[in-house]
Simulated assay, not measured.
Amino acid sequence: MSLLSGIHHIAIICSDYERSKTFYTQVLGMQIVREVYREERRSWKLDLALGTQYVIELFSFPEPPPRPSRPEAQGLRHLAFTVQDVDTAVAQLQASGVTPEPIRVDPYTGKRFTFFTDPDGLPLELYEI
């Protein structure tokens, strides 16, 4: 029997809360579950969902240190989202001013995918199912 039963959420610390909130809600279309300002930490916490699945906790903190993420730094490499049609998703990103990398094909699965970044440079992937 596995110790784990699923992934509960992914936590992201952003440098500009309003910019990231707009990106994740208006550009990527995630729904706000809860938004809380934590006075004692001078920090916003935004809970986001895709449909009915709770997915991301978006945090702001005063002056968070930058984290190196490229090229191939240790730690979380990227966050991948599934899409039905990668071409349609890329067109929607481009219409919002986001420039994804060229679409590639996974040599092992034959599935199409692309990468782009959030406002802080966090690498995100769209993977066609």
Score class of each variant (00 low, 15 high):
26 Q>G: 04
32 I>Q: 05
64 P>C: 00
38 R>D: 03
39 E>H: 12
64 P>R: 03
66 P>G: 06
43 S>Y: 00
55 V>P: 01
21 K>C: 10
17 Y>I: 08
50 L>G: 05
55 V>I: 14
41 R>I: 03
54 Y>P: 02
36 V>E: 15
23 F>L: 05
59 F>Y: 13
65 P>S: 13
43 S>H: 00
56 I>M: 07
24 Y>Q: 11
62 P>A: 09
32 I>G: 01
33 V>S: 10
20 S>I: 03
27 V>H: 04
33 V>K: 10
18 E>F: 10
30 M>P: 09
22 T>W: 08
28 L>G: 04
18 E>Q: 15
43 S>D: 06
55 V>N: 07
28 L>S: 07
38 R>Y: 04
33 V>W: 08
25 T>Y: 01
62 P>I: 02
65 P>V: 12
46 L>C: 04
46 L>I: 07
56 I>S: 06
30 M>L: 15
63 E>D: 14
30 M>W: 09
54 Y>L: 09
19 R>S: 11
24 Y>W: 08
22 T>E: 12
46 L>Y: 00
22 T>R: 13
65 P>G: 04
42 R>Q: 12
66 P>K: 13
60 S>T: 06
48 L>Y: 02
65 P>T: 09
63 E>Q: 14
19 R>Q: 14
21 K>H: 10
65 P>I: 11
59 F>L: 13
41 R>K: 12
21 K>M: 07
54 Y>C: 02
52 T>A: 13
36 V>S: 14
22 T>I: 10
58 L>K: 09
48 L>C: 01
18 E>I: 07
48 L>N: 02
26 Q>M: 06
54 Y>A: 00
24 Y>R: 08
46 L>Q: 01
54 Y>T: 01
53 Q>Y: 05
26 Q>D: 15
33 V>E: 13
31 Q>C: 12
61 F>M: 14
49 A>I: 09
60 S>R: 01
29 G>A: 08
49 A>N: 09
45 K>F: 13
45 K>C: 15
58 L>H: 08
53 Q>L: 10
23 F>R: 02
22 T>K: 14
43 S>I: 05
63 E>L: 09
41 R>N: 03
63 E>V: 06
41 R>G: 04
39 E>L: 13
29 G>R: 08
37 Y>F: 15
30 M>S: 12
61 F>I: 11
52 T>E: 14
55 V>W: 07
47 D>S: 15
36 V>L: 13
62 P>C: 05
39 E>V: 13
31 Q>A: 15
63 E>T: 12
42 R>K: 13
45 K>P: 08
62 P>M: 06
47 D>M: 15
44 W>T: 08
43 S>T: 04
32 I>K: 02
50 L>W: 05
44 W>Y: 14
19 R>L: 11
